[in-house]
Amino acid sequence: MTPIGPFGDPPTVIGMVHLPPLPGSPGFEGDRDAIRTRALEDAVTLEAGGVDGVILENFGDSPFYPEDVPKHVVADMAALATAVRSAVDVPVGINVLRNDAAAALSVAGAADADVVRVNVHVGAAATDQGVLEGRAHETVRLRERIAPDVAILADVHVKHATPVGEADIERTALETAERGRADGVVVSGSGTGSETALADVERVSNALADLETPVFAGSGVTAETVGDVLAAGADGAIVGTALKEGAETTNPVSLEAVREVVDAATNR
């Protein structure tokens, strides 16, 4: 298996910090302190459970801006990421939904984070936000200017989307890693919490074997399935729903659930 940038040697489990609705979003409840407290509690619990890293994501901000979030979203995420960065010793990642890689890099640079996740890095995808186009040419150049040490994890056939065009998943993975210069790729299921197909993991892992580009499963991984995902060729998994109380995506992180997934990945 391939070492995964800031996360070290595999197998790697990265836990999600799903932020509640931020100011300006329809579901915002008027309390920035509560959002900060929840983010810190989730991040600290993830670290206590043994994850190798955490990713902050503005999960509660639906309906999402397609590619350019307002400045206040960047400001709030930078403040939250800085607080989380100070509270945990594991690597920290940033994902700004739906596909604002420039904002994610800006937050990562300001907060001294380690990685960004980009949902559509190359090619194009039809989504509920419309057609999103990859901007690898801009993202990679911006990274060199403002956050050169930040790794880029890029999705291949991202969830909640349909690829535009005829490219199969192997070709998309190769173009993401080679021409898009992503440091790692993410393979996921059809939606949040949906199981990542083992066949897709295997196909992408095989396609990238010569490049030694790490592959993550990006959705639906549980304590029961993480061993199969790793056996199919994944170097790690990004886990959200399965680590929450009652396996509900918007619930707080459960320490017991985190330990179950981490133990299953480590002792498979």
Rank of each mutant, 00 (worst) to 15 (best):
D114I: 02
M16L: 14
V215I: 11
D31H: 10
L97Q: 11
I152F: 08
A103P: 09
G50Y: 03
G5H: 09
E166F: 08
E245S: 11
L255C: 06
D68T: 09
P11C: 11
V118E: 06
D112W: 01
A151N: 06
V54C: 12
A83G: 06
I169C: 07
V131M: 09
T12D: 01
V44R: 14
L230W: 06
D89R: 15
E138W: 01
P6H: 15
L46S: 11
A223Y: 00
T225W: 07
A207S: 03
G227V: 03
P163I: 14
V204H: 05
V253H: 05
T176C: 09
G236I: 01
L142M: 08
A182Y: 05
A113K: 08
I94L: 06
G165P: 03
L46M: 13
T196P: 03
G236T: 00
A234I: 03
V253Q: 10
R117G: 02
I146G: 01
A111R: 04
L208M: 04
G191Y: 12
D235S: 13
A34G: 14
R117A: 03
G93W: 12
T45H: 06
T162V: 14
F216E: 01
V92A: 11
S25N: 04
R85I: 12
T82A: 15
F7T: 00
A217P: 10
I238S: 05
E29C: 13
G109K: 03
H18Y: 13
D263R: 10
A223N: 11
L46I: 09
A108T: 13
A161K: 02
G123K: 06
H157S: 08
R85D: 05
V13Q: 05
G236K: 04
V88C: 10
V215E: 04
N206H: 12
V261Q: 01
L243A: 06
P63Q: 08
K71Y: 09
D149P: 01
I4H: 01
A101N: 05
R98Q: 06
I169L: 13
V73L: 11
L40I: 15
E67A: 14
G240Y: 05
P26Y: 13
V88P: 07
I152R: 04
G218K: 02
L255D: 13
E57Y: 09
V221H: 14
G227K: 02
H137N: 03
V150L: 14
A81D: 06
R38M: 14
S205I: 07
G27T: 07
D114F: 07
D228Q: 11
I94C: 07
D149E: 15
M77W: 01
